[in-house]
Design a protein around this nucleic acid. Structure first.
Lengths: 187, 187
DNA sequence: GTCTATACAGTGATAGAC
DNA sequence: GTCTATCACTGTATAGAC
């Protein structure tokens, strides 16, 4: 029922929404068709590989967004560490709708869909972890401590999203982000 | 192909394994039949409510285990706070197979299965949070700080599991638990 | 209780008209 | 490009024999 999106980027956004809402297996072609306003024929014309190709392209779009908006800034040597990490947290708060939205990569990771998209999922989190570690090294912090803190922060972000969904309380996620911010301020 | 389990508890354990491995939607009756060695007829005889009833009973079994092994000890006023929380972390490390196993409640929470089992999921995490908060209050810690730290620890546990699955590196989860233990020692 | 056979809706995917 | 019709298949669930 939403207006049909002729441009590919908007179409991918709609697909991402369906995958986030229903998961990979739950996102049937019928639901996708209804959500995009496109018939199955049109969908298979746009994505000859079917659902798999849709998911791959959606994950790639998300990855691209984080790469340019989150990872790259973290790696920029000119940006001081603390503002860089704070910008990352702000970006996450915005992207995940203050806890009202799930991380599709994380959700896929917990399902049996993981194996199918294993490289996309692990690559996303590995590059996030590396970029965040690089920023923390500029605090300065020893390599091992930076890597450990980076892992902790990623865990807390993902866990905050899990908890927010579980308790049906998005504010959970924002509180966790705030605690990370406070922790950062104490470093 | 595993030997068929005549006793209900063992059957539920097998069902839990299938749900953990494939998710709710991915756990088809065919797979469940193969994993338990029971025909569909037998399964519907044991669970007239079908898959829904299976999942409800599995979630209840998991909830029971945590209630007696984790939540109740945390609430016991006689147990000092730090040993109580350490015992909880050890229990989690064992239960989740050092990161090789997923939290079924958390996995369901991130999928569209959440709505169907919302009360079971939110109840589980709420009681976990309350019990952990109760333990932290005995540190002693002010109520609000205890609640915040409790929320943080739960986030880190769940996030550690997500990260471990995402990176295909179970050690991720153990490292996060170790960091929580270190944090606890500094309190 | 356990099985086999079956009903029937829904799945992903394809073909072909327009 | 978009649609409709249709494919073969799998999904859950049920019925009934043993």
């Amino acid at each position: 029922m939403p207006p049909r999106a002729h441009n590919p980027a908007a179409l991918l956004m709609q697909l991402a929404a369906v995958f986030r809402e229903h998961g990979f297996e739950g996102a049937s072609m019928a639901r996708i068709s209804a959500a995009t306003g496109l018939g199955k024929g049109s969908l298979y014309n746009a994505f000859p590989g079917g659902k798999d190709e849709m998911a791959v392209k959606v994950l790639a779009m998300i990855d691209d967004w984080f790469e340019t908006e989150v990872f790259a800034p973290l790696r920029t040597p000119e940006t001081p560490a603390v503002p860089a990490v704070r910008a990352m947290l702000d970006a996450c708060q915005g992207y995940f709708w203050s806890g009202g939205r799930v991380c599709l990569l994380g959700a896929f990771a917990l399902s049996d869909t993981r194996d199918r998209f294993a490289t996309a999922i692990s690559g996303y989190f590995r590059r996030w972890h590396d970029a965040l570690t690089a920023a923390l090294v500029r605090l300065p912090l020893p390599d091992d401590q930076a890597a450990a803190l980076s892992e902790e922060i990623l865990s807390r972000i993902q866990g905050g999203l899990v908890l927010a969904r579980s308790l049906n309380d998005p504010a959970c996620f924002v509180r966790e982000l705030d605690r990370i911010r406070a922790r950062l301020a104490r470093l």
